[in-house]
Each structure stands twice: as structure tokens, then as C-alpha cells.
Amino acid sequence: MDPLIIQDHYEIDYRHSYAEDSPFFVALTKGKLLGSRCTACGYTYATPRSHCMECGAPTSWHELPLAGRVHTYTTCHYGGELFLKETPFTLILVEFDGADTLFLSRLKGAEPEAVRIGMPVVARFAKTPSFKVTDVWFEPA
């Protein structure tokens, strides 16, 4: 006998708290990019975390420059189902002067062939915030 196959739908809404990372998402609505700086060793994170991965001490909020450089990049022609309709899109890791780590974001307004490692980029912010990390993206400087 052939196996019997049925369709089974599943959907759920989560109540999600940004908890200790909340100030980062609020700052995006004010056109600011917040990283973290360790209060003990000074290690500076371009993606925030409230405790230092190097020494374990608490970090303080640290405002990042809005200009950075492309550390690496890719243009996605496929993606997870949620993002398929947005393809092709370009992902970059951004490096900032004065930060020890990087920040993942989208690069808009650049032809995929024109993107280079080291390329200067600037942050842009959504006028109507969705309170997601996509409230910020980068464009060529």
C-alpha cells in the first residue's frame, strides 16, 4: 500500500522580550547604533552583549560610528522561506573603527558586482520602526 500523506498546518505567535538587549532596539528608532564596551578590559563589541565574552565583566552601552567598512559580503539569490520574496539581497559584516567585533546587516543601494571588501558604508535607519534589527541597514558611503 502507498503511504498515506496528509497536510498538517502549524502556526504560533511568540511573546518575545529583548530583555537586557532592549536599549539597542530602542536606539535604532533614534538613529543610533549601540555596541557594548567592557567596563573592565575595554573590549568593544559592535553587536551588543551585556557581559564581556573575554573577561566576564559587565559591559556598558557604547555608541558606534555610523560609518564603517565591508568586512565580507554575499548576495543571496535564494534564502529561507521567510526571505525568499526579498531575493536577491546582499548581506555584509560591517567593521567599525574602535570596535573589536563586527555587525551583520543588509547592504542596499549597491549593485552586487560593485561590492568590495573594505568598501566604506553608512548606516541608514527605518522611518517607521519595526523594532527589529532590520531597522538599520547600510548603503555605500
Partner: peptide, 24 residues
């Protein structure tokens, strides 16, 4: 899921960025 997934969560994209840097 706060900082990476919403940007365009796709593992091939992540690996593509890593190898782009390896090439560089």
C-alpha cells in the same frame, strides 16, 4: 534570532560570507 536571523537568515549566506573572507 535577535541579531542574525531577521537580517536574512540563511546558512548558505553565512558560509558565503566566511569563504569570501577566506578568498580575500
Amino acid at each position: 534570532t535577535n541579531f542574525d536571523f531577521p537580517v536574512g537568515g540563511f546558512y548558505t549566506g553565512y558560509y558565503a560570507m566566511m569563504v569570501r573572507r577566506h578568498m580575500h
